[in-house]
Amino acid sequence: MSTVYPYPTLAGRVDITVRQAGIDGKALPFSLISPREQVVALHLAGRDDWEEATLELEVGLPNDELADGPWASVACVAVLTEGATNSRTVARLERRRDDTRWRGEIRLRRSMYVARAVLQVSVVGSYDGIDGRVIGTGDVPWVVDLLARTAVRQRDIEIVEEDFRDGPQEWLRPFKEAPWLVETSGELPTVLLNTSFEGLGALLNGARGPLEKAAAGLVATQIAGDAWTAMFHSAVGDLEVDDDGAPQVPDGWKEPVLRAMLPDVFPGLPLADALAEIHSRRTEGHGWAELQSRIQFAASRRAQAPKNLTTALRAVSRPQEGAAR
């Protein structure tokens, strides 16, 4: 869905790069800045007492288009935001006369940010007597990760191997019998695998031979199926609703979950319609029970149940093969 603006906007590319970063005046190793993934990792092992990070920024704008365009008093600002802390830091960037790039720095206060801040760039100008209009934004924002030790744009669901019985996480004790647990209330959904459940880790991590591999595949399918189901429910749990009652596509990990699963839950319905349908069934209760089998089907597809089950069935139907060796 593209937005139509009531004034001319930039067609050219706007890109932002972090050239250098420092923590309390000490330069950050460049290996913690990934221009390719557009991530800065601010976690320094052994240093948790820092107060401020400084990011040196460089922005490329379509300068010719700006020079020839109808906008006045053009400014370029970097905007650092984080939903969890409602924090927002804005820094103006400048372009020197002989330079083609806009440069500047933005300061990230440790007290204001907690986990993952997003760094975006906006180009602002005056048009038709109105100041401060956004005429362009960066193509892909950067992620400034305060917790990561490596500059990786994490897109996957977290899988944590944890000892439910004797591990440090007290709250897992009641679940000591459970082989795994799916947690969707955090920033990222997490699958917790119980290391005190004997044999589970060994099977998933080091299956050998067709039979063991087939078993591991089945278990993985089972876990993944649970995870997708839990994520789906969590994703449709509290949808924001527009004025006209249409639910919005949620952000973060919930969006890809819904995009992946809704076409299987409501085949033939566009995303917006499917979202509206699921929202009304959930809030009004009618047809919600009937939907569970569709959700289960969608989750089992994501978990590749048919493929892994077929592999397993074939493996058990040839038991001699393993014994002969």
């Binding site: 600002v77 927002r88 804005v90 204001m112 401060g132 956004v134």
Partner: peptide, 21 residues
């Protein structure tokens, strides 16, 4: 706010972190 960047129209400064601490 979808077309206007209030931050540019009405500049603000970073809060004083030391004072907060």
């Amino acid at each position: 706010g979808s077309t206007l960047l209030y931050d540019v129209l009405a500049p603000d400064e970073l809060p004083d972190q030391e004072a907060l601490f």
